[in-house]
Amino acid sequence: MKPPVFEYHAPTHIDEVLELVAQHGDEAKPLAGGQSLVPAMNFRLARPSVLIDLNGIDGLGAIALEGDELRIGAMTRQRAVERSDLVGEVTPLLSETLPFVAHPQIRNRGTVGGSLAHADPAAELPAVALALGARFFVRSQRGTRVVEADAFFDGLFSTAMEDDELLENVAFPVLADGQVTAFSEISRRHGDYALVGVAVSLSVDSSGCCERARIGLLSVGDGPVLAVRAAEVLAGEVPSDELIRSAAARAGHDDIDPPGDIHASVDYRRHLTEVLVRRTLAAAFARASNGGSA
């Protein structure tokens, strides 16, 4: 289990990175935290011929408030986000979710950008990005463009980024008045990839009516899945057990086309999705009626 030979670059400025990715195209792999890439290389399942180490680049690891968005640099360690008081205040869904991502030893290296760009359908952060409606700042020598979360994830380990593009940072909307979020997942063991996970973001108006809901699901499709039909059930309605149940049923039946694998069959995933969406929505609505606190 030793990684194959590769050409190694350790640039110190983002412009060098952009030049290298432009030059090498899909032959090159950016090395962020490496917590998914290096195991794949050790198994020799991934054989990038060029590796561009991003760990020496300054300025990609910042967490900053910009207007009504929290900007997180792509190379920000997951552990830093988890520990950030600012994150806890303005995007509590991230703080709530990160402890579910593997183990501290992995989060000490793993980066926010790496996880999002890797687009593993079983990863937590892509589903959270979907639920929150994050925006992705994607840069190349051609310039910077912004991709909405709904368009960013476009298949199995696949994103809307071109070969010459690099994820520079991600903007998460700051929690608005009347907005609540919640996350839960079922995994075999603490820190494992989830069998199913649910990230919920809801806005409830002063009359208690659900204005808007976004439900991000993980491990139930090619990538993170936005449960659009379930959200439709909730929109404009006053939450009740019955409403939540019917939204959850829509999520389990109509929003997903889950894969079966050795840990969970298709039917079990559908069933878990329904159960978990129900429970997570209930938790979120309970938070809303408590004035937003957990």
Binding site: A10, V38, Q105, N108
Partner: peptide, 20 residues
Amino acid sequence: GACTVLLDGESVRSCLLFAV
């Protein structure tokens, strides 16, 4: 986790890092 070491004081898997 058998290969866990501290890198600048934080625990990391040394099998998932390159020596460079």
